[in-house]
Design a protein around this nucleic acid. Structure first.
Lengths: 228, 228
DNA sequence: TGCCGTACTATGGCATACCATAATCTGACG
DNA sequence: CGTCAGATTATGGTATGCCATAGTACGGCA
């Protein structure tokens, strides 16, 4: 952090309509306002969002490229359905990337990073204690954001971020699984401890394991859903 | 492969103008017709491509989301410049994902997969022997495509594919490095041998190493470029 | 009564036109 | 000769409108 250049950056508040719309749409999908499989009819979205089709189309293209929206030929765009197989792949990729970031953090061993991770962990525990799922999800995202940002893995973070949106519904179900409020934070704690100790490979392994157990839960949920 | 459903699929030849334009643009960037940093003025592209700005803009949005194009505020789109730091990250991510795919292939141990990989390898060697870089690059891409397809890692493949385009210029320089025509194929051979032997972890490690050495060469090239 | 063809409608594909603003040029004034 | 203000231009942002086609509903004919 260079105090002369970094602070107080205003980051272009003059957003374009397209950017605003993108955020709105993302939020709408994220919050399950649009469910997987729902059709996204361009003209309907225009009316709802109060923007022109040009904007809506560009935003849909963007979301499609991210994988959040699929375009059925001669049907139009829908919110992507994530199959069990895809979810498995997504968890696997996330695991690999988060493991890389965790290892890098451990090797850097920055006190500021560790403090930030501790703070996120505290929020996660608070969220579980109060039964506040939103807080848990937010703090978990912040945990990983910190992990990637601190290790300078912006590219990986962008990928993880996009992938995470595609398994959003699974995430919110996963954290509500009995026992997850103990196991999840404990595994994340292990990541932080490994980073604190500067043990790269341990952090790597701990991150892998955390995602792996989330993946296992998700797979069980998906089987249940498909089974009945 | 289900013979009843898979073969002869025509795959929607009625492509939209947008899709055609996307391919053209990708190809133009891939073939260095547009270089990193070049401005992509919408109206100029319209004229050159013979399509409307609507199309061009949607395509640019798509490429931007993929990371191939950057949008400078109040300046417009340019072909993304890949910094040394980004390239390092991209190689690291590719390594992790290719390692996962290689491991999965080894665990599956499909004769068809191994045969296809062998064929790719032969083409790579032929390409080096004839000094045909294009063939080398193509066959290398096919090698990895096979690796990901055979292991059913479509999601990862999409990511790798997008990332690869961003380091395209480095790839073509890397394979021309003295000694690479020996080391590269040898490392890929090791991946195939591990798969043939059904040794997942060995395949994983071999894939990691292959990318790591490519990354090392790329870093050297980038330092040279920035140095003088 | 059931099936097929036709008309209609919903919806995406594409092009054009206008507007706002940032970059740039130009000329006058100090 | 330099600098600053105003005009001009380049360029992206946005809206609108028409067209083609896939899906759908309806009516007639067997």
């Amino acid at each position: 952090m260079n105090a002369a250049t970094e602070p107080l950056r205003v980051d272009r508040p003059a957003k374009t309509l397209r950017e605003l719309t993108l955020e709105k749409m993302r939020e709408a999908i994220f919050s399950q306002h649009f469910r997987p499989g729902d059709r996204l009819v361009e003209r309907d979205l225009c009316e709802r969002l109060g923007v022109s089709r040009t904007i809506v189309r560009e935003v849909l293209r963007h979301l499609e490229t991210e994988g959040l929206v699929s375009n059925l030929p001669a049907r139009g765009p829908i919110v992507s359905r994530t199959t069990a197989a895809e979810a498995l792949q997504i968890y696997e990729i996330r695991g690999a990337l988060e493991a890389i970031a965790a290892r890098a953090c451990a090797e850097a061993r920055q006190p500021a990073t560790i403090a930030a991770l501790d703070a996120c962990l505290a929020r996660i525990l608070a969220g579980y204690a109060r039964g506040n799922s939103t807080l848990v999800l937010e703090a978990t995202s912040d945990f990983y954001r910190t992990l990637f940002a601190s290790s300078g893995k912006e590219v990986a973070w962008n990928i993880v971020n996009a992938l995470t949106m595609r398994i959003n519904h699974l995430r919110s179900m996963t954290i509500k699984t009995p026992g997850r409020e103990v196991e999840g934070p404990r595994q994340m704690q292990r990541i932080v401890e490994a980073i604190r100790a500067g043990k790269g490979e341990e952090a790597h392994a701990a991150a892998l394991q955390h995602v792996a157990s989330a993946s296992a839960i998700a797979q069980r949920l998906l089987r249940e859903r498909e089974g009945g």
